[in-house]
Protein backbone atom coordinates (compact mmCIF):
# COMPACT_ATOMS: atom_id res chain seq x y z
CA UNK A 1 0.00 0.00 0.00
CA UNK A 2 1.34 3.41 -0.92
CA UNK A 3 0.44 6.04 1.67
CA UNK A 4 1.05 9.77 1.69
CA UNK A 5 2.44 10.88 5.03
CA UNK A 6 2.33 14.51 6.01
CA UNK A 7 4.76 15.79 8.61
CA UNK A 8 4.62 19.03 10.52
CA UNK A 9 7.13 21.51 9.05
CA UNK A 10 8.93 21.42 12.41
CA UNK A 11 10.19 17.93 11.56
CA UNK A 12 11.14 18.55 7.93
CA UNK A 13 14.81 18.89 8.83
CA UNK A 14 14.81 15.25 9.94
CA UNK A 15 13.25 14.11 6.65
CA UNK A 16 15.43 15.67 3.99
CA UNK A 17 13.60 19.02 4.29
CA UNK A 18 10.38 17.42 3.14
CA UNK A 19 6.96 17.44 4.76
CA UNK A 20 5.13 15.25 2.24
CA UNK A 21 6.52 11.72 2.12
CA UNK A 22 5.49 8.39 0.64
CA UNK A 23 5.51 5.32 2.86
CA UNK A 24 4.35 1.75 2.48
CA UNK A 25 2.40 -0.47 4.87
CA UNK A 26 -0.92 -2.06 5.70
CA UNK A 27 -1.22 -0.45 9.12
CA UNK A 28 -0.19 2.84 10.66
CA UNK A 29 2.56 1.00 12.53
CA UNK A 30 3.96 -0.53 9.32
CA UNK A 31 3.88 2.89 7.66
CA UNK A 32 5.84 4.38 10.54
CA UNK A 33 8.35 1.51 10.37
CA UNK A 34 8.87 2.35 6.70
CA UNK A 35 9.18 6.04 7.57
CA UNK A 36 11.86 5.29 10.18
CA UNK A 37 13.77 3.06 7.75
CA UNK A 38 13.95 6.04 5.39
CA UNK A 39 14.56 8.68 8.05
CA UNK A 40 15.96 7.05 11.23
CA UNK A 41 16.22 10.34 13.15
CA UNK A 42 12.43 10.54 13.30
CA UNK A 43 12.19 7.32 15.31
CA UNK A 44 13.73 8.94 18.39
CA UNK A 45 11.30 11.82 18.08
CA UNK A 46 8.06 9.89 17.67
CA UNK A 47 8.58 6.68 19.68
CA UNK A 48 9.42 5.91 23.29
CA UNK A 49 12.04 3.35 24.34
CA UNK A 50 9.46 0.57 24.03
CA UNK A 51 8.57 1.48 20.48
CA UNK A 52 5.24 3.05 21.37
CA UNK A 53 4.05 6.30 19.86
CA UNK A 54 4.72 9.09 22.33
CA UNK A 55 1.53 10.56 23.74
CA UNK A 56 2.63 13.98 22.58
CA UNK A 57 1.73 13.00 19.01
CA UNK A 58 -1.58 12.36 17.32
CA UNK A 59 -2.12 10.49 14.09
CA UNK A 60 -4.92 11.25 11.69
CA UNK A 61 -5.97 9.01 8.80
CA UNK A 62 -7.61 11.01 6.02
CA UNK A 63 -8.23 13.81 8.49
CA UNK A 64 -9.84 11.66 11.20
CA UNK A 65 -8.14 10.73 14.47
CA UNK A 66 -6.66 7.23 14.62
CA UNK A 67 -6.83 7.26 18.45
CA UNK A 68 -6.81 4.84 20.28
CA UNK A 69 -4.46 1.99 19.29
CA UNK A 70 -3.20 4.07 16.39
CA UNK A 71 -0.42 1.70 15.37
CA UNK A 72 -2.79 -1.16 14.56
CA UNK A 73 -5.21 0.87 12.47
CA UNK A 74 -5.38 -0.38 8.85
CA UNK A 75 -4.61 1.88 5.92
CA UNK A 76 -5.24 1.43 2.23
CA UNK A 77 -3.72 2.62 -0.99
CA UNK A 78 -4.10 6.37 -1.41
CA UNK A 79 -4.77 7.10 2.26
CA UNK A 80 -3.23 10.19 3.78
CA UNK A 81 -1.60 10.12 7.21
CA UNK A 82 -0.82 13.16 9.34
CA UNK A 83 1.41 13.09 12.41
CA UNK A 84 0.85 16.19 14.49
CA UNK A 85 2.42 17.14 17.81
CA UNK A 86 0.42 18.38 20.76
CA UNK A 87 1.13 22.10 20.97
CA UNK A 88 0.38 24.36 23.91
CA UNK A 89 2.16 27.68 23.42
CA UNK A 90 0.29 30.92 23.64
Amino acid sequence: MSIELQLSSVFARYAGNQTTLTVKGNTVGECLDDLFSQYPDLKKIFLDKNGNLLRAFDIYINGTSAYPKEMTKPVKDGDKLHIIPVIYGG
Binding site: P68, V86, I87, Y88, G89
Partner: peptide
Protein backbone atom coordinates in the same frame (compact mmCIF):
# COMPACT_ATOMS: atom_id res chain seq x y z
CA UNK B 1 -2.29 27.21 20.56
CA UNK B 2 0.97 27.95 18.79
CA UNK B 3 4.48 26.61 18.40
CA UNK B 4 7.00 28.17 16.04
CA UNK B 5 5.36 28.70 12.67
CA UNK B 6 2.49 26.36 13.50
CA UNK B 7 -0.83 26.99 15.20
CA UNK B 8 -4.13 25.34 15.96
CA UNK B 9 -7.68 26.37 16.82
CA UNK B 10 -10.99 24.77 17.68
CA UNK B 11 -14.33 25.84 19.15
CA UNK B 12 -16.15 23.79 21.77
CA UNK B 13 -19.89 23.99 22.35
CA UNK B 14 -20.35 21.96 25.55
CA UNK B 15 -22.63 18.98 25.14
CA UNK B 16 -22.71 19.42 21.38
CA UNK B 17 -19.17 19.16 20.07
CA UNK B 18 -15.83 17.56 20.89
CA UNK B 19 -13.93 19.25 23.71
CA UNK B 20 -10.21 19.82 24.11
CA UNK B 21 -9.87 16.69 26.21
CA UNK B 22 -11.61 14.63 23.50
CA UNK B 23 -8.79 15.72 21.20
CA UNK B 24 -5.80 15.40 23.52
CA UNK B 25 -7.07 12.71 25.98
CA UNK B 26 -5.52 14.38 29.01
CA UNK B 27 -2.02 14.34 27.55
Amino acid sequence: AVNGFEGRAMTVIPGKSACLNCVYHGV
